[in-house]
């Protein structure tokens, strides 16, 4: 599929913009390359959309989905897709992304980002659904690697190989969540270098960084903490091997004061500035 390139994101640091900071960001207009929001919070009209359109007057906005369920075996939710299309028309986002995960199968809905076995069957299935999303939106979708707490014995390839093949088949881009990869390294013994080597670097359009928490030996992707030194180190390695890309700080629970978030973004910016491709 020949899709408009997704290079509108400024190659600088941004933050995930959440409700507690809407007012302050609009009042103080801090220096920020761009912001990212969760699609589903803006699917209606009213105050949320109005606020986002005001934000859009000052910052490039990236739309990040948590509910599409690209790997779900329930039929692709066309209502959800239409709502996303309306949102895109209104906001004109600089990027649109979704997670490589599922949330609905066999009559069950699990409102979470769930892993699935990386099989040839899943590959055709997910590729068809990405095709449909890109066709409907008329533009490239960025697909984000997942943080996982378990993996499947049936997997026939790694997540990195799966993503690389999705890019080849659908022309989608990659949103590389560096913290998610770190979580998988610790939890599942994933080989970080192999992941970084196998994904097509030119398809990587954005990075995510966040903090995790630890539960009974398992790293949980809670986005409630500053970025850990180990994740900064992996980010630096990624910058050296893939190059600088627009980088987002995500913080979704125990959300701190805005300056804390901005300071995290500044740390990412510093590392991007110090990186020579």
């Amino acid at each position: 599929m020949n899709l408009p390139a997704n290079d509108l994101l400024p190659c600088s640091a941004g933050i995930g913009l959440r409700a507690p900071h809407y007012r302050e960001v609009l009042d103080t207009l801090p220096a920020l390359g761009w912001v990212e929001v969760h699609n589903e919070n803006f699917f209606g009209g009213g105050a949320p959309l109005r606020t986002l359109l005001k934000v859009r007057e000052h910052y490039p906005v990236s739309l990040h989905g948590v509910g599409m369920g690209l790997a779900s075996t329930a039929p692709l939710n066309e209502q959800h897709l239409s709502a996303l299309q309306r949102l895109c028309d209104a906001v004109q986002p600089v990027a649109i992304s979704e997670h490589l995960c599922w949330n609905s199968a066999d009559g069950f809905v699990v409102n979470d980002l769930l892993p699935f076995p990386y099989t040839m069957e899943a590959l055709s299935h997910v590729a068809r659904r990405i095709d449909r999303v890109q066709e409907k939106l008329g533009r490239q979708l960025l697909v984000e690697n997942l943080s996982s707490y378990l993996s499947f014995a049936q997997s026939e390839m790694t997540e990195g190989e799966f993503l690389a093949e999705l890019v080849r088949r659908t022309g989608c881009g990659i949103l590389f969540d560096v913290e998610n990869l770190y979580v998988n390294v610790c939890n599942l013994g994933v080989d970080a270098r192999a992941f970084i080597d196998v994904i097509p670097h030119e398809a990587v359009k954005e990075y995510h960084l966040a903090g995790y928490s630890v539960c009974d030996g398992c790293l949980v992707d809670t986005h409630n903490h500053p970025v850990y030194p180990e994740v900064w180190a992996l980010y630096e390695y990624v910058l050296q091997h893939i190059g600088p890309r627009p980088t987002l700080i995500e913080w979704d629970s125990d959300i701190p004061a805005l300056p804390v978030l901005l300071a995290e973004a500044a740390k990412a910016q510093l590392r991007m500035d110090g990186c020579h491709e």
Partner: peptide, 25 residues
């Protein structure tokens, strides 16, 4: 048979994390 084993925690722990996420969300 479906779910692989992990170095630092049991499969039950993994499932429990997902159950907590589900209920928490």
């Amino acid at each position: 048979e479906i779910i692989a084993a992990y170095p630092n925690y049991s499969c039950d722990t993994a499932i429990e994390v997902y159950r907590n996420n589900y209920r928490g969300n």
